[in-house]
């Protein structure tokens, strides 16, 4: 059981999510983005994390993309490790991600959450460290691409 209450938001666009985050943050609600939520729920249960609001990103279409576009493999932050493993577009990523937790939790754990996690079981990062990857981040001024700048995320 989570021993406190929080507000749950499920925006339908990345822009809406970011502006929600800013609003909630300025209200002192310490919002967190919510993907699979496995880590947020287990940490909240232990009172190691106590957000007053969570923003579920699973309703954002860009976060659910898993396909090739112009020779680039695009993976949304809310794509689960199971989806990645089953589509097997990038076998090394499937293999690394397939070693996280067990298969039922991998139906819930998302790639975004696994990269940004606070817990150390972030195996899917390895596949990105050895590949030519980039992250796209939505900010207050719109989307931004960062080439090979995954390291700040990994440190959590």
């Amino acid at each position: 059981m989570i021993p406190f209450d929080f507000e749950y938001y499920k925006p339908t666009s990345a822009r809406e999510a970011v502006s929600l985050f800013n609003t909630l943050n300025s209200q002192g609600k310490k919002p967190v983005y919510y993907g699979g939520g496995t880590e947020i729920i287990s940490f909240s249960r232990l009172y190691q994390l106590y957000p007053k609001a969570v923003i579920d990103i699973k309703g954002i279409p860009e976060c659910n993309v898993l396909e090739f576009q112009n020779d680039h493999l695009i993976i949304g932050a809310a794509v689960t490790l199971t989806q990645i493993q089953e589509s097997n577009f990038y076998p090394l990523l499937s293999w690394c991600g397939g070693r996280v937790a067990d298969h039922t939790i991998r139906n819930k754990i998302t790639l975004g959450g696994n990269i940004c996690a606070k817990i150390p079981y972030r195996e899917s990062i390895l596949a990105f460290l050895v590949s030519d990857c980039e992250v796209v981040i939505e900010g207050v001024n719109g989307a931004r691409r960062d080439y090979l700048k995954l390291l700040p995320f990994i440190r959590g």
């Binding site: 939520g37 287990s42 067990d102 298969h103 039922t104």
Partner: peptide, 27 residues
């Protein structure tokens, strides 16, 4: 365990097994 380790709370969501202790009801 309520921590997603043991699997005693497993249910199917859209046909896929998921641990119901690590999922919010609103989801």
């Amino acid at each position: 365990c309520k921590n997603g380790d043991c699997g005693a709370c497993t249910v199917l969501v859209n046909g896929l097994p998921v641990k119901s202790c690590l999922m919010l009801a609103v989801e």
